[in-house]
Protein backbone atom coordinates (compact mmCIF):
# COMPACT_ATOMS: atom_id res chain seq x y z
CA UNK A 1 0.00 0.00 0.00
CA UNK A 2 2.79 2.36 0.90
CA UNK A 3 4.18 1.55 -2.54
CA UNK A 4 1.15 3.12 -4.22
CA UNK A 5 1.79 6.37 -2.36
CA UNK A 6 5.48 6.33 -3.21
CA UNK A 7 4.88 5.56 -6.88
CA UNK A 8 2.30 8.34 -7.15
CA UNK A 9 4.65 10.78 -5.42
CA UNK A 10 7.55 9.81 -7.65
CA UNK A 11 5.51 10.23 -10.84
CA UNK A 12 4.22 13.67 -9.90
CA UNK A 13 7.48 14.97 -8.51
CA UNK A 14 9.62 13.78 -11.41
CA UNK A 15 7.20 15.58 -13.74
CA UNK A 16 7.48 18.72 -11.64
CA UNK A 17 11.25 18.45 -11.41
CA UNK A 18 11.45 18.15 -15.19
CA UNK A 19 9.20 21.18 -15.73
CA UNK A 20 11.18 23.21 -13.22
CA UNK A 21 14.53 22.21 -14.64
CA UNK A 22 13.66 23.20 -18.20
CA UNK A 23 11.89 26.38 -17.10
CA UNK A 24 14.82 27.50 -14.95
CA UNK A 25 17.41 26.81 -17.63
CA UNK A 26 15.42 28.77 -20.21
CA UNK A 27 14.10 31.69 -18.18
CA UNK A 28 16.54 32.38 -15.35
CA UNK A 29 18.25 35.75 -15.42
CA UNK A 30 21.59 36.53 -13.80
CA UNK A 31 21.50 39.38 -11.32
CA UNK A 32 24.30 41.84 -12.10
CA UNK A 33 25.58 45.21 -10.96
CA UNK A 34 26.83 48.13 -13.00
CA UNK A 35 30.41 47.52 -11.85
CA UNK A 36 30.28 43.85 -12.89
CA UNK A 37 29.08 44.79 -16.39
CA UNK A 38 31.67 47.52 -16.88
CA UNK A 39 34.52 45.31 -15.66
CA UNK A 40 33.38 42.54 -17.97
CA UNK A 41 32.76 40.19 -15.05
CA UNK A 42 29.22 39.60 -16.22
CA UNK A 43 27.67 39.28 -19.67
CA UNK A 44 25.08 37.32 -21.57
CA UNK A 45 21.66 37.86 -23.04
CA UNK A 46 19.56 37.25 -19.91
CA UNK A 47 20.47 39.83 -17.31
CA UNK A 48 18.73 41.60 -14.49
CA UNK A 49 20.36 44.85 -13.51
CA UNK A 50 19.41 46.68 -10.34
CA UNK A 51 20.55 50.28 -10.14
CA UNK A 52 19.75 53.85 -9.28
CA UNK A 53 18.82 56.43 -11.91
CA UNK A 54 21.65 58.98 -12.15
CA UNK A 55 20.64 62.61 -11.80
CA UNK A 56 19.44 64.53 -14.88
CA UNK A 57 20.05 61.78 -17.39
CA UNK A 58 16.46 60.89 -18.29
CA UNK A 59 15.57 61.63 -21.94
CA UNK A 60 12.20 60.55 -23.22
CA UNK A 61 10.91 60.74 -26.76
CA UNK A 62 7.36 59.61 -27.35
CA UNK A 63 7.72 59.75 -31.13
CA UNK A 64 8.21 58.19 -33.57
CA UNK A 65 8.51 55.26 -31.18
CA UNK A 66 8.39 55.68 -27.39
CA UNK A 67 12.04 55.59 -26.37
CA UNK A 68 13.46 56.15 -22.95
CA UNK A 69 17.15 56.75 -22.27
CA UNK A 70 18.85 57.24 -18.94
CA UNK A 71 21.94 56.24 -16.99
CA UNK A 72 22.13 54.11 -13.87
CA UNK A 73 24.79 53.58 -11.23
CA UNK A 74 25.17 51.06 -8.43
CA UNK A 75 23.12 51.65 -5.28
CA UNK A 76 23.74 53.77 -3.24
CA UNK A 77 26.43 55.90 -4.95
CA UNK A 78 28.46 53.95 -7.51
CA UNK A 79 31.02 55.95 -9.48
CA UNK A 80 30.58 54.27 -12.86
CA UNK A 81 27.39 54.56 -14.86
CA UNK A 82 25.83 52.61 -17.69
CA UNK A 83 23.56 54.02 -20.38
CA UNK A 84 20.20 52.33 -20.67
CA UNK A 85 17.80 52.31 -23.59
CA UNK A 86 14.24 51.11 -23.23
CA UNK A 87 11.64 51.10 -25.99
CA UNK A 88 8.44 51.78 -24.18
CA UNK A 89 6.40 54.35 -22.34
CA UNK A 90 7.90 56.25 -19.47
CA UNK A 91 6.48 54.98 -16.15
CA UNK A 92 4.92 57.47 -13.71
CA UNK A 93 7.40 56.58 -11.05
CA UNK A 94 10.67 56.95 -12.99
CA UNK A 95 12.66 59.83 -11.55
CA UNK A 96 16.31 60.66 -10.90
CA UNK A 97 17.45 58.95 -7.71
CA UNK A 98 14.80 56.22 -7.89
CA UNK A 99 15.82 52.57 -7.90
CA UNK A 100 14.98 50.51 -10.95
CA UNK A 101 15.12 46.86 -11.94
CA UNK A 102 16.00 46.35 -15.60
CA UNK A 103 15.88 43.12 -17.56
CA UNK A 104 17.55 42.74 -20.89
CA UNK A 105 20.96 42.45 -22.53
CA UNK A 106 24.22 44.36 -22.41
CA UNK A 107 25.96 45.26 -25.68
CA UNK A 108 29.08 46.82 -24.15
CA UNK A 109 28.35 50.43 -23.08
CA UNK A 110 24.61 50.17 -23.71
CA UNK A 111 22.08 48.15 -21.72
CA UNK A 112 19.02 47.38 -23.81
CA UNK A 113 16.17 46.80 -21.39
CA UNK A 114 13.18 44.73 -22.43
CA UNK A 115 11.47 45.37 -19.12
CA UNK A 116 11.72 48.22 -16.68
CA UNK A 117 10.36 48.20 -13.15
CA UNK A 118 10.62 51.16 -10.85
CA UNK A 119 10.50 50.41 -7.17
CA UNK A 120 7.11 51.41 -5.92
CA UNK A 121 7.43 54.44 -3.66
CA UNK A 122 5.20 52.81 -1.01
CA UNK A 123 8.23 50.63 -0.37
CA UNK A 124 9.89 53.49 1.35
CA UNK A 125 8.47 54.76 4.58
CA UNK A 126 8.69 58.55 4.78
CA UNK A 127 11.50 59.36 7.18
CA UNK A 128 10.38 61.19 10.32
CA UNK A 129 11.44 64.85 10.66
CA UNK A 130 13.97 64.17 13.43
CA UNK A 131 15.37 61.03 11.85
CA UNK A 132 15.79 62.73 8.52
CA UNK A 133 18.01 65.37 10.07
CA UNK A 134 20.10 62.72 11.82
CA UNK A 135 20.66 60.60 8.73
CA UNK A 136 21.71 63.68 6.80
CA UNK A 137 24.26 64.46 9.48
CA UNK A 138 25.64 60.93 9.11
CA UNK A 139 26.06 61.49 5.39
CA UNK A 140 28.04 64.66 6.04
Amino acid sequence: MANRYITAGLIVFSAIAFLMYTAVSETAKAVVTVDQLVDGRASGPNLRLGGRVSGDTIVYEAEPRPTLKFAVHDIPDGKTTINVIYYGLMPDTLKAGRDVILEGQYHGELFEASSLLTQCPSKYEVPLPGEEAESQKENL
Binding site: A23, V24, E26, T27, A28, K29, A30, V31, R48, E103
Partner: peptide, 9 residues
Protein backbone atom coordinates in the same frame (compact mmCIF):
# COMPACT_ATOMS: atom_id res chain seq x y z
CA UNK B 1 25.95 33.79 -8.46
CA UNK B 2 22.54 35.25 -7.96
CA UNK B 3 19.87 34.55 -10.56
CA UNK B 4 16.18 35.27 -10.67
CA UNK B 5 13.16 33.80 -12.40
CA UNK B 6 10.02 35.70 -13.33
CA UNK B 7 6.53 35.20 -14.68
CA UNK B 8 7.63 32.95 -17.61
CA UNK B 9 9.04 30.41 -15.14
Amino acid sequence: EKSVVGAPF
